[in-house]
Design a protein around this nucleic acid. Structure first.
Lengths: 240, 240
DNA sequence: AAGTGGTCTAGACCACGGC
DNA sequence: CCGTGGTCTAGACCACTTC
């Protein structure tokens, strides 16, 4: 095998990264042609199939569009359908600064239903973090996260107002978040939720309950979120 | 190139089909091992990379799971996350009989916003179909569909109370539905919607606006749906 | 040790797009 | 026409799981 890999990283991932970097650095804009398969293969000293593999994954992720007979092009600014992203990442991808207020961060017990969602025994200790998300100095979401305290009790001391929960988990705890299953429905604002979101009671809210799993399919976070309806909608892509 | 293709169909698609057939015919149940890459390659007289390609696609579709060092296995009966299904199909998959009442089916004009969603010129004629979905003899959803009248004006005469719109489009019109983009938010029941759904005004409703595209990426249907919240929630899977 | 999936090579021919 | 992506070959080594 040619020494196309610097360390243990597969060559096709290095190629993806190099293309992604060019897009991120605005050297390539939507619609611009990406180096062709043959070109990438040559540049990286790699076989054609390997360069193809890299582009195939970028295409599947929607980063790039391939037009047979014509070339490979940077995909138009896509809405990130069905993409698991933290609030920080979502805001960042729109060039906005996230603002978060932590309402509560402590360890709770005897929440059997939540423990069950996390696959924990009934009396499992749980980290509970309640945050209000702001945009334009106005609250628009209330998100309550629950995590197993056995692994993540240290989170209660992390300054989550300015640190991303996703980033902390991935960087400091070595957790690789992989996917989430969400249940979406509609409710109306009441009591504490109405108060924290600063909306009249009776206003419609989108409620999203999600379980986020790590790459080994273990539940890591259970999140219940309430979103002001006129400020937030959810985009989903379904395929047949 | 070896004559691995009978007609013009690529070999990797034929391999996919053969695996799918075995699963469909219950010869392979969830958890059962699928023939290994090398075995499939031999069976189909094809190179390893080609067999791999076939399995890679089946994996991406969630049909199959690959465990390095171990094998490839039929994926467990997956909940159809992010799957584009008609109401009829959804009910059918739960063993329930669909019940639908057609409120309105006619051709409208001068609906510029809707025409825009369908990619039509402003004054395009549009088929509008309004239906109430029932379950347990109780209305739970109001769905309004819009389609370009240029192609689908015949739909106003189809008995859509007992015929699936998806099935009609796919069978009678030769349209291949491919994917949909949905925007989900929360509203409250008001006026005509509250009346048709038989709920008090002010009750929370889930609103889903979706554009359904055919396989050539042309918008075919625009649907606005209102769903009783306590009877309906939406499941979404996101991946990182 | 044998078998599996994951990565990779160095070529090949095809259909199609744009000039 | 040449360059592009799409398909394909006949091998190879690796890390891993299973026995």
């Amino acid at each position: 095998m040619a020494e196309s890999r610097r360390n243990g990283t597969p060559a096709y991932i290095l190629i993806q990264q190099s293309v992604r970097r060019q897009i991120q650095a605005d050297q390539l804009k939507p619609g611009d042609p990406v180096s062709s398969e043959r070109e990438l293969a040559r540049q990286h000293g790699v076989s054609l199939m390997t360069a193809r593999h890299a582009l195939a994954i970028l295409e599947r992720e929607g980063v790039v569009e391939r037009r047979p007979g014509s070339g490979t092009f940077v995909a138009p600014p896509r809405i990130h359908f069905n993409k698991l992203m933290s609030y920080t990442e979502q805001m960042g991808s729109r060039g906005l600064a996230p603002r978060t207020k932590v309402i509560l961060a402590r360890i709770i017990e005897d929440e059997h239903e939540i423990a069950a969602r996390l696959g924990l025994p009934g009396e499992g200790r749980i980290v509970k973090i309640e945050r209000v998300r702001h945009s334009a100095n106005e609250p628009f979401a209330l998100e309550t996260c629950y995590l197993p305290a056995s692994e993540f009790s240290g989170l209660v001391d992390v300054p989550l107002a300015r640190t991303s929960l996703f980033a902390t988990l991935e960087n400091d705890y070595g957790v690789e978040l992989a996917y989430s299953d969400e249940e979406v429905d509609a409710t109306v604002a009441e009591g504490r939720v109405a108060q924290l979101l600063d909306v009249p009671r009776g206003d419609p809210l989108l409620r999203i309950r999600q379980v986020i799993y790590s790459s080994n399919s273990k539940p890591v976070i259970y999140v219940v979120g309430f979103y002001k309806s006129e400020r937030h909608s959810l985009f989903v892509r379904r395929t047949r």
